[in-house]
Nucleic acid binder design. Structure first.
Lengths: 225, 225
DNA sequence: CGTCTCTTTGACAGCATTCAACGTGTGTGG
DNA sequence: CCACACACGTTGAATGCTGTCAAAGAGACG
């Protein structure tokens, strides 16, 4: 567990640089104005511990939220896709950092929308739903991290990602093997080996490394009985 | 990962049997009446998937919430102590099961208190805080499960538990080694071995298996840099 | 004092990691 | 158009951490 240091520290992204555009637009759901911004691939959106002055909605692209240990080990908490909210905090500070997996378009909302909702304003219900769903997802993730084998983890990841991809059987992975590994609590090599094994066993096809066809979706699901 | 089946299935608790007393008492915080009930050690409070008709506050004793895989593998999500709330769900069903680690006294609140709060009623703020705190804790737990070694996990558990025990240096563990293992994503043997190693190294003393004195709290904290 | 559960310890096996080398794909410049 | 660099991904060999299987120790309780 020691040798990851130099290796992993290399991967820590550059400081935040939000190339915000000045456009403003309303948002029916939250009833609050938000400013659109673009973030380049691998750029940090906010750091763990940074002031939580805003939260975000993904318009396009993929976002990851993660935590780091002091020696560079990383745990990805979640990937966010178009339509997802992230960065809502109770504290004044963000408890995770957020980074762009691919080039992203986001809408930033002012934090006080959350505070307003908490005291009974509009959007309470929506925020509640979001928090409850995130909590349930994080609990499922903990079960996966604590009690599943590498094979089960990778299968679960593929099935989840496929479900979110409108049920299509070919999933396009926006993230690297390193991202997948840090999401599943594995190493990049184990992820790669496990995918190869799934392909040998006929459960998946990999036309390219980032394009995965789920040839036997049922078998993949069964791995997570 | 296979041989756990028969072994683990033995540990699944008996069906719910809430020996509710008929007393009623007001609760200043939530502004809602709750009924007091007692649950014996290892009894189930509610099952995963059961109707979430109520949520609970711990008056005395320790509660665990957990998830099971179909083969009996268990992941404990959290331990709750006097004053803690648990069982608040967005869905109609509980996403985790809850069990009494020790004999417990609880207050059950009607679920509609949550629904009322969601639509802007009293207690919104309190519920929000609870959810946000739980989410942050679960995210930390995921980092521990995914990226920490056995030694780091056990040290983190002891430090956490000590923090919650009013900072005293001698912690009384209400739970078994099996509970600790299922919380940390380890086996009972690894937990035991790791505790023995910490004792050999002088970081802790174990007068009894359930009484642990943190002899070198700083060193324990340093294990989780 | 025996029984039962919980815990500890030992020996061994196996899965995931580590370390290392080799492919593969893409973009750039000659 | 090809050569090269570079990042990303795959594969192999060996180590090691944690799990598995087994047995013995320690308390609690009747």
């Amino acid at each position: 567990m020691g040798g990851q240091l130099a290796y992993r520290l290399d991967r820590i992204p550059t400081p935040p640089l939000l190339q915000a555009k000045t456009s403003e637009e309303g948002d029916a759901g939250l009833g609050a104005a938000g400013s659109v911004l673009h973030v380049a691939q691998d750029r940090e959106i906010y750091a763990e511990g940074a002031a939580a002055s805003a939260f975000y909605k993904v318009v396009a692209g993929i976002v990851r939220t993660c935590k780091f240990l002091s020696d560079g080990r990383r745990q990805i908490d979640a990937f966010y896709r178009a339509g997802d909210l992230f960065g809502i905090e109770g504290d004044a500070q963000h408890s995770l950092s957020a980074e762009a997996v691919s080039d992203c378009t986001l809408i930033a909302y002012r934090r006080r929308c959350v505070d307003a909702a908490r005291t009974g304003g509009a959007g309470v219900d929506q925020l509640f739903d979001h928090l409850l769903r995130r909590l349930a997802q994080t609990q499922d993730h903990a079960l996966l991290l604590g009690r599943r084998s590498a094979l089960e983890k990778v299968a679960a990841f593929l099935v989840d990602w496929a479900d979110q991809s409108a049920g299509r059987k070919v999933v396009s992975l926006a993230m690297t093997r390193q991202d997948i590994a840090d999401y599943l609590g594995l190493t990049i090599e184990t992820v790669s080996r496990t995918l190869s094994q799934l392909e040998r066993d006929g459960l998946i096809d990999m036309p390219t490394a980032r394009q995965i066809r789920l040839a036997d979706l049922q078998a993949l699901r069964d791995l997570n009985a």
